[in-house]
Design a protein around this nucleic acid. Structure first.
Lengths: 206, 206
DNA sequence: GGATTCATGTAAGATGTTACATGATTGT
DNA sequence: ACAATCATGTAACATCTTACATGAATCC
């Protein structure tokens, strides 16, 4: 079993789902395409971790609703207590930030501005889901939604922080007639680089 | 060309490196094993994006020092201005957090505590590199290290925030005789869940 | 009329990990 | 003695992405 398999178990532990639903649900936790999920579901069903029930629909394609078995629940419970492997984060933006200084200032600004609007979109989109999950708490089915609620808030928090970081960098570029190399020289000259960065969110004027 | 290729170009844009050095350098930006890097370097060399010079050593194995070519630099410069694809983040911890409520409170605490020490280690380790990079600014070769400096600070900032999040969750679990479900009910009853989470870093008492 | 949603599946290809292979030097 | 560092490479395997395949219903 691989991590995707455990992610599926953790989703189905909450509520039985079709493969199609799982694709959407897992997107926030462990993104995977349907071409990865369907074969995995078959294998897990063969191993007795899941069972499915075929649901015939009219106007829509039929579907299979998967549920976790006792064996599946035990497998998940055991895995959860094992220490997780290191998180992997792959972000092209970071490579580009690393080399943007080769290019002109306009491109640098655009790169960062685009990132900001991208992040803002995500935050706005997620807000709806958070509101929904909050609703569910009040309807008392919350225990199963609490983890997801925490997760979404955590993601939003991190994205908001990244927005602040981007805006801070942008500010430095836009504020005056600084160009990138002047900016760097200024910061170093002032001996403030480290200080400024570490307190970036509190700083509004340099 | 794939992202790893561009990551290599961006690293070599800073300074010529052996494949072995690249593995270490790229770890912070786009982690890859040597088994992925060496074949990629060969291909890029064949495509004229890189050149290498064989350096014979005594007491150590010989090595190849790769440098970026004019064609390589152009390729990188063009790619940098294109909009980056979405970041990918795969973190088993998030799945476990999502299902830890199936398990007992002790396991939940341990999961989070381990995460904290893991993050603290990373932050401490990174601090040395940041100090080194700061040194390099002062030695005036800084332009090529500035991006990396920003990056490491940003990573540390994010990890520190995650530590705060973990401690906040842990605090809720440890502080009193709350168990997980009581805690959730309390928060919901008080209608403070959203508020508390969004201001988690400022909150010390509930 | 064309895109999107619902719904499942397979196949080919790209990307990433683990293991195999070699070998002197230095630190514990 | 044993592990780690330096240094490069290949092979097998696991994982993930993109494309192919089908088809009714609904929305713009």
């Amino acid at each position: 079993m691989n991590t995707l398999g455990y992610a599926i178990l953790s989703a189905l532990g909450r509520k039985p789902c079709s493969g199609y639903e799982l694709v959407q649900y897992l997107d926030a936790v462990w993104p995977a395409k349907h071409s990865q999920i369907y074969p995995r579901l078959s294998k897990m069903e063969q191993n007795g971790l899941l069972v499915f029930e075929e649901v015939v629909q009219t106007g829509k394609p039929d579907k299979k609703i998967f549920s976790i078995t006792e064996k599946g629940r035990e497998t998940l419970e055991k895995w959860v207590t094992e220490s997780p492997s290191d998180p992997i984060m792959r972000d092209e933006f970071l490579i580009k930030i690393n080399s943007i200084w080769l290019s002109d200032e306009e491109s640098a600004k655009k790169l960062i501005q685009d990132r900001i609007s991208n992040l803002e979109q995500k935050v706005a989109y997620r807000a709806d889901t958070i509101a929904e999950l909050e609703q569910k708490h009040r309807e008392n089915t919350m225990s199963k939604h609490f983890g997801r609620y925490l997760l979404f808030n955590r993601r939003n928090m991190m994205d908001k922080e990244e927005i602040s970081w981007c805006e801070w960098v942008l500010n430095l570029l836009e504020k005056t007639n600084f160009n990138i190399s002047k900016l760097m020289l200024w910061l170093i000259g002032a001996g403030k680089l480290n200080l400024v960065i570490q307190n970036m969110m509190a700083v509004s004027e340099i």
